[in-house]
Amino acid sequence: MSVKALILTGFGINCDRETALAFEMAGAETDRVHLNDLAEDPARMAAYQILAIPGGFSFGDDVASGRILANRIRHRLGAPLQEFVTAGKLAIGICNGFQVMVKMGLLPLFDGDFTQEVTLTHNNAGRFDNRWVNLNVDGATSCIWLKGMETLEVPIRHGEGKFIARDEPTLEKLRSQGQVVLRYATARGAHAEGKFPENPNGSVDDIAGICDPTGRIFGLMPHPEAFLHHTNHPRWTREVLPKEGAGLQLFKNAVQFARENLT
């Protein structure tokens, strides 16, 4: 049976096409589905092994990035989403999708219920920024999306990507449960240690992405779907790079995991 990925659209989501392309290149079948169509017939979710909330500017980032879409998904799709998660299926939120996930409490999902424990807010520089960043994958990660990966270079494109946890114990819990899986780094692979531009937004502990305790639900600010082809890379005209963009590996990992475990 083939792996199917549901790509959410509507209300200002705008990376749905390239996110769908990434899953297709990774071997999945994809459907781009408007939130209202899904809310009308939530049973549709059962047909999919993977849910993606792509990047974009849902509701214009008005009030706070991701907040209004997060509430809307929680109110209209809360129960079927809970079911999807309980069934051990996979979900990814990229950029605005990650903001939606943390604000509705789909991440970090400590106890399986939707409670907001962390946030993503205005970059230290107080402005939107589009630049490529180096990322380190936590060596011992159980995140299925990052399996076998050590580093990744992809762009960030956000104004509200600064990761903050509720408090120190929350942060410690994230670390100790292996949920901090992606960190901003230097080109040589050292921790960014909060320094701009390596850490582009001032995120606590250089955190760029986290997963749930099972490693199946994953959110990150950088855009892996923006690096599917070597010509997407900012230095492809001066470096020898594999034809396939490094961002594709995340999607391949998920599709492979879904094929082996969920179909």
């Binding site: 705008n14 990376c15 096409r17 390239e18 392309l21 990047g55 402005r127 939107f128 920024d129 589009n130 762009p155 494109r157 855009h223 779907e225 923006a226 599917l228 997407n232």
Partner: peptide, 8 residues
């Protein structure tokens, strides 16, 4: 400050 890469 312009997103110059969206749409991939």
């Amino acid at each position: 400050m312009y997103d110059h890469e969206v749409q991939g």
